[in-house]
């Protein structure tokens, strides 16, 4: 004899099941938010840098290569970029009371033109730094090529931005360089760097 139990189909989810679904969704959303925040935190993570001789404190992007061996105060480069290595550079130059930002920009142009291919100034505009200090910004382009003549590398168009301000008898020149293809994408990194820069 076979006994067949007949029961009616439940008409809906139990409260427990319903809450389970809600929690899954909430946890999922939380995970996405945490993940997104972690990614943002990783991408925007910075390392402090200070140079008391030059009177500069800055926060540069984590995992960028720090170089203090040349004429600049410091330079950081994103070595993970597959094209031109996005670069932020801070230099300090002594000035007289008669030196203007315009003089400095002209000097930069005169020095760069013989060394950089197709160097061209795009624009020169007033620029307001986060602390409301006034500065001058110069946008320019040039073509960068591989220094090693034994490799086959194609030249790349690079866009640059100099932000220059004069204070306490010295000019601070902050330079941002990036491939034109990634310039807009990387510009916020430079803006955050400027926001945190103290001098």
């Amino acid at each position: 004899m076979t006994i067949i139990e007949v029961a009616s189909r439940p008409s809906g989810l139990t409260a427990r099941q319903r809450w389970s679904h809600y929690f899954v969704l909430i946890y999922g959303m939380l995970a996405v938010i945490i993940g997104f925040n972690l990614r943002t935190a990783t991408l925007t993570a910075t390392i402090p840098y200070s140079n008391s001789a030059a009177g500069i404190r800055a926060y540069y992007p984590q995992n960028w290569l720090l170089d203090t061996s040349d004429s600049y105060v410091f330079r950081v480069r994103d070595m993970s970029q597959t094209g031109f290595k996005t670069t932020i550079e801070v230099a300090v130059q002594p000035v007289t009371i008669n030196t203007t930002a315009r003089n400095l920009l002209d000097t930069l142009t005169l020095n760069r033109a013989p060394a950089l291919s197709a160097y061209d100034v795009l624009s020169t505009n007033p620029y307001t730094l986060p602390n409301d200090r006034q500065a001058t910004a110069m946008a320019y382009v040039f073509v960068a090529s591989e220094a090693n003549p034994f490799l086959e590398s194609l030249p790349q168009v690079v866009e640059g931005l100099d932000v220059i301000t004069i204070q306490s008898g010295q000019a601070i020149i902050v330079t941002f360089l990036s491939s034109v293809d990634t310039y807009e994408e990387n510009l916020p990194i430079f803006e955050r760097f400027l926001n945190d820069l103290e001098f």
Binding site: Q62, N63, W64, L65, L66, D67, T68, S69, M79
Partner: peptide, 10 residues
């Protein structure tokens, strides 16, 4: 190096 990313170590 991966922690510091410093040219002096290169």
């Amino acid at each position: 190096f991966a922690r510091d990313w410093n040219q002096d170590q290169v």
